[in-house]
């Protein structure tokens, strides 16, 4: 039997950098968010990050903050976010789905209950931006027991000791934060990124995906020359805002990014 985490490695082994879009569940509304995620998958996304809304998203810039606030106003719940995974699988979405959420809602749901439901519904892994390796022991143990990935982060500020620590613990892929800062578009890719990816590559075996601040196909190509995967979120949210054609336009955008990475 294949474990959910194994599909993550496969998604990074297509002979080109993987594209992993992020989208907030429940934005602009629940049904549209699922349509958008399905469109991403149909247009070549290799993996997908599904954002679980939290009232206090301290790693996110204004664009994603706004989207998750709308989702909460629409009444989205953690149970519904987990249900979304099931519905996407029923619609024929087969790419790895990573649930990205802050720690407190997951804790409130119950760690075991959350991971159990996520695995049962067809998720492949978890990304928790406010849970550094030191605090992740219990969630690490539970996700392993259910065969799910747990993604750790590294940032340009990470010391060699920390890179070493993550190298020991990494499963699935490691999320490299391209800049010190929060999510959201930047005008250019950081000049230090190459050196940073190199430092991590020297120690970490699993694929490296870079996120934060990437918003155009050109930037994706630049990052793709350095890393194994490219993550993009805020740009998709912007395309979804007040846009009746959001589903098709985001699908087209994903197609462009995948072409740029080919």
């Amino acid at each position: 039997m294949t474990l959910p985490i194994q599909a993550i490695a496969t998604a990074f082994a297509k002979g080109r950098p993987a594209f992993m879009p992020y989208f907030s569940l429940g934005f602009p509304d629940y049904a549209t968010s699922l349509d958008i995620i399905a469109a991403c998958a149909e247009n070549g996304a290799d993996l997908m990050e599904l954002g679980l809304p939290f009232s206090d998203p301290l790693a996110d810039g204004p664009t994603i903050q706004h989207s998750t606030q709308i989702a909460l106003q629409n009444g989205i719940t953690t149970a519904q976010c987990l249900q979304a995974v099931k519905e996407l699988r029923q619609r024929g979405v087969t790419i790895p789905l990573m649930l990205m959420g802050y720690y407190n809602p997951i804790l409130a749901f119950g760690l075991e209950n959350f991971v159990h439901t996520a695995a049962q519904n067809g998720a492949n892994g978890l990304i928790v931006p406010d849970l550094p390796a030191e605090e992740a022991g219990e969630l690490d143990r539970i996700t392993q027991a259910y065969g799910l990935g747990l993604t750790y982060f590294l940032s340009p500020t990470s010391t060699p000791e920390r890179i070493h620590l993550i190298a020991q613990k990494a499963r699935g892929f490691v999320y490299l934060v391209s800049v010190t800062g929060i999510t959201g578009a930047r005008s250019s890719v950081s000049a230090d990124l190459q050196a940073f990816v190199g430092r991590v590559r020297a120690q970490v075996q699993v694929p490296l995906a870079v996120g934060f601040g990437i918003s155009t196909p050109e930037q994706a190509r630049t990052v793709g020359e350095l890393a194994d995967g490219v993550i993009m979120g805020s740009q998709l949210i912007k395309l979804a805002e007040h846009n009746p054609n959001a589903v098709s336009e985001i699908g087209q955008f994903v197609k462009q990014v995948v072409q740029a990475l080919a």
């Binding site: 790693a59 030191e134 940032s155 800062g181």
Partner: peptide, 12 residues
């Protein structure tokens, strides 16, 4: 207590 913050802040 503990340190439930993004990785970027841990070195700081």
């Amino acid at each position: 207590g503990g340190q439930f913050v993004p990785e970027t802040l841990i070195p700081a």
